[in-house]
Design a protein around this nucleic acid. Structure first.
Lengths: 229, 229
DNA sequence: TGACTTTTTTGCGTAAGGTCACATTTTTTA
DNA sequence: TAAAAAATGTGACCTTACGCAAAAAAGTCA
């Protein structure tokens, strides 16, 4: 299922994954070493569940490599995708505050390496190194702001606008500049994108086809889109 | 427009508004007194803007009495209501982390008393009393969870379900138990509720009428709803 | 209390997205 | 590389909420 090893073992040269994690950036080298020893590294295969109602782990997860999707399923089998998280992002913070992370599911979108710290150890860490709490608060505030943006988009933008906004977001996060425009490596399938935007698979297909007809984008296979400039 | 006075002045008997504010609960009596001296109390009339793009104040706002709505307007004049906040809730935390609070508007829904602490002073406070940061982080995580719920609702629930969920939420927050059921004092107008749920004024009217026909609720004037048991 | 204003309700036609069924393309696997 | 599987695209039809307009109800103020 998943192998365990200390994070430092996997970086023999001493370059640690912690440098990529914003919430640990304010720490001194010595403090980082201390945190390092608490971290357990885990590996997840594409499609594997990292958090699942049937698989409860009370710890903080920090993505070292790869991508995950965070989603809430509803009773009728539909699912709302909340985030796509990648290197340096954390999740599982709900569990740290005693709140059961209700029905959140986190699934690996590709092979993913994750650092975990147990709830108890992380809470002790917060007491000892309050800088982490400050930084974490900042990241949470940012994520909140992001979620507020999504609410605005779901609430007042037209479907077409929502799809376009998503492309622009992905262009920034997953795009590479080329001569013809920005080439986006899509992290989600059509169905998953639809589940993020609160629409259906068919609708997103139609909107993308429309954008292509209008010359705004070029669909390349199913996993790439060229956003023309 | 708004009067200023230290919070302690408005509570001659020494009972301070701070006791109602979760993020200050972990503080000792002495620490509370210290924070108290940094607080400036302001009063806002119903309909007055507390945060507005044209009225930038870099501070943390804590509601002492009353209710406010937090909303994001879009370019076409529509507005998405994000939260209704009340006694003990805070807002304006975005500004504390250097992020411009883009286009957020906060407006008083009724006459409201608010405690404010300047950005600089609050940041110093966080350094000095890290318990506040821990508590604030917890509250932010809770609010994030709330926003995720709203996204789920906007994304996958039917309009009818959304309206019903809102009634149930208000029943908990603003309802009083009576013999016939829960009497809800609505904090928002039909239009505002619609702006929260991403639908139109007319649609929410129709759904409420339908619920009434089905015997689930009883509309009492425009500002009260009886949720029958 | 009565006139006035604001908010809400309701009817009706329309547009937009959902649903279903099936064709097509891409990706995966043998 | 070919066959199988998975994902995506497309057309026809249907449902639902929107938008406009006008009526009704509730709230407000002199």
């Amino acid at each position: 299922m998943s192998t365990c090893q200390t994070c430092s073992n996997s970086h023999p040269k001493g370059t640690t994954c912690m440098r990529r994690v914003p919430i640990f950036l304010p720490l001194s080298g010595e403090e980082m070493g201390e945190v390092q020893r608490l971290i357990v590294q885990r590996e997840y295969k594409k499609g594997e569940f990292i958090i699942h109602p049937l698989k409860i782990m009370q710890c903080l997860f920090i993505i070292n490599r790869g991508k995950v999707k965070v989603l809430r399923p509803n009773s009728e089998g539909k699912e709302q995708i909340l985030y796509v998280l990648t290197t340096g992002d954390f999740f599982g913070e709900q569990a740290l505050f005693g709140r059961m992370s209700e029905d959140i599911i986190v699934e690996a979108l590709e092979d993913t390496g994750i650092c975990t710290i147990s709830k108890a150890q992380f809470q002790a860490l917060l007491q000892k190194m309050p800088q982490i709490a400050l930084k974490m608060m900042e990241v949470l505030a940012l994520r909140l702001s992001k979620m507020e943006e999504l609410v605005e988009s779901l609430g007042i933008n037209s479907v077409e606008q929502r799809v376009w906004d998503l492309l622009e977001e992905y262009a920034v996060k997953f795009g590479k500049m080329t001569e013809q425009g920005t080439l986006i490596q899509l992290p989600l399938s059509r169905e998953e994108m639809a589940n993020h935007l609160g629409i259906t698979r068919e609708t997103i297909s139609r909107k993308l086809a429309k954008f292509q007809d209008e010359g705004k984008i070029k669909l390349i296979g199913h996993k790439q889109i060229l956003l023309k400039k």
